[in-house]
C-alpha cells in the first residue's frame, strides 16, 4: 500500500495516516461510549432519566475541537497536493492519449507506444489528451490521477523512484470497455530507456488514409475493431467480401459484404444485422456522412481485406 514509488507518495500517505488516526480514535471512542450508555443507563435499572437539556460549554468544545482538527487535515491535504501542480522546468514530456478504450503514449517525433516506459529518477510531465470522451489517467503506485477531458489541457507529473511495472487504469467511466482500458508503466534505468526509445518505430507521423480518418472521427472504432476483436459490432478486419448470415426483417439471409451492403449498414443500420449482434445499438449516419465519404470508407475497408 505505501510503496512510495514516486516523489509525491509521501505527501499523500502522510495525510492518509493523519486522517486514519483521527477517524479511528473518534469512531472507536464514540461507539464505545454509546454501548456503555446502553448498559449504564438501561431502563432495567429503574433509575429515572435526568431531565437536563444541554450545555453551552460542551457545545463550544465540540464545535471548536472538530473545527481545529479539520483545519489541520485540510492543511496537510493541501500541502501534500501543492507540489503535484508545480512541474519542474526540465521534466521530460510525454503525451498520454486516451481513446475508447486504449491508452497510447506519444514521445514526440511520431514515436508512439502502448505502454508507458520511463527512466528512473527523472521528472516526467504527462500531458493528457482525449480524442473522444472523458477518461481518467491513474497510476495508483505513484499517487497520481487526473481526468483526460476532450478540449482540456490537463497534466500531471511525478518522479518514479523504483524500477518495475505499475498498473495504469482509466478511472473516468468511458463506455463499454472502460474496465479494459488499462496498461502498464515500466520504470527502467536511463540507458535502457534511451535504447528502447531509439528502437521504437516511428508510426505517428504517417498520415492515416482518408477512409480511416472518417472512421476515427465518426466514432466507428468504438464498436467496430480494426484488428478482428469482437466488440459491440462486427470487426472491420477482413469484413469486405466476407459472407455473413444477417437478420433482415426477422429472417436469416446470407449476404456478401459489398459496396451496397456497407452503404446500407451506414445509412440504415437496423436493416441487415449480422447474426449474433444486437439491433438498435448503432445510429444512422444518413445526415453525417456524404455518399462520397461512404465510398472513401468502403475503399479503406477493402484495404483491410487485402483488396
Amino acid at each position: 500500500m505505501f510503496e512510495g514509488a514516486s516523489n509525491l507518495a509521501a505527501g499523500v500517505d502522510r495525510t492518509f495516516i493523519l486522517i486514519l488516526a483521527i477517524a479511528v480514535f473518534f469512531i472507536v471512542g464514540i461507539t464505545t461510549f454509546m454501548i456503555w450508555t446502553l448498559f449504564k443507563y438501561s431502563r432495567k435499572k429503574n433509575i429515572p432519566a435526568r431531565q437536563f437539556t444541554g450545555s453551552v460549554t460542551l457545545e463550544i468544545i465540540w464545535t471548536v475541537i472538530p473545527l481545529i482538527l479539520v483545519m489541520v487535515i485540510f492543511f496537510y491535504g493541501w500541502k501534500g497536493y501543492a507540489p503535484m501542480r508545480k512541474v519542474p522546468a526540465d521534466a521530460m514530456k510525454v503525451t498520454a492519449i486516451g481513446r475508447m478504450w486504449q491508452w497510447s503514449f506519444d514521445y514526440g517525433n511520431g514515436k508512439l507506444s502502448k505502454i508507458l516506459v520511463l527512466p528512473i529518477n527523472k521528472a516526467v510531465r504527462m500531458d493528457l489528451h482525449s480524442v473522444d470522451v472523458n477518461h481518467g489517467f491513474f497510476i495508483p503506485a505513484f499517487r497520481v490521477k487526473e481526468d483526460v477531458i476532450p478540449g482540456y489541457k490537463n497534466y500531471l507529473w511525478f518522479i518514479p523512484k523504483y524500477k518495475g511495472d505499475y498498473d495504469i487504469f482509466c478511472t473516468s467511466y468511458c463506455g463499454l470497455q472502460h474496465s479494459g482500458m488499462n496498461t502498464k508503466a515500466r520504470v527502467v534505468e536511463n540507458s535502457v530507456f534511451v535504447h528502447w526509445l531509439d528502437s521504437l518505430p516511428v508510426t505517428g507521423n504517417i498520415p492515416d488514409p482518408e477512409g480511416l480518418v472518417l472512421i476515427k472521427n465518426s466514432g466507428c472504432i468504438a464498436c467496430h475493431s480494426l484488428d478482428g476483436a469482437k466488440l459491440v459490432g462486427p470487426s472491420f478486419q477482413g469484413v469486405y467480401g466476407k459472407k455473413h448470415i444477417v437478420v433482415t426483417d426477422g429472417k436469416e439471409v446470407e449476404k456478401v459484404v459489398d459496396d451496397a451492403y456497407i452503404a446500407t449498414s451506414i445509412i440504415d443500420p437496423g436493416k441487415d444485422v449480422v447474426k449474433g449482434f444486437n439491433k438498435g445499438l448503432m445510429q444512422s449516419y444518413r445526415d453525417k456522412l456524404t455518399d462520397a465519404q461512404i465510398v472513401q470508407i468502403t475503399d479503406y475497408l477493402k484495404t483491410l481485406s487485402g483488396k
Binding site: G11, V12, T15, F16, I19, I22, A23, F26, I27, I30, T31, V70, I73, F74, Y76, G77, W78, K79, G80, Y81, M84, G136, F138, P140, R143, V144, K145, T171, S172
Partner: peptide
C-alpha cells in the same frame, strides 16, 4: 461516522488524488 470520516479522505486534496473514482 464511518461514512463521514472516510469523506475526510476525499475532501483532503492530496488523498483525493489517490481515491477519486
Amino acid at each position: 461516522m464511518i461514512g463521514g470520516f472516510t469523506g475526510l479522505f476525499l475532501g483532503a486534496l492530496a488523498t483525493n488524488v489517490q481515491l477519486h473514482d
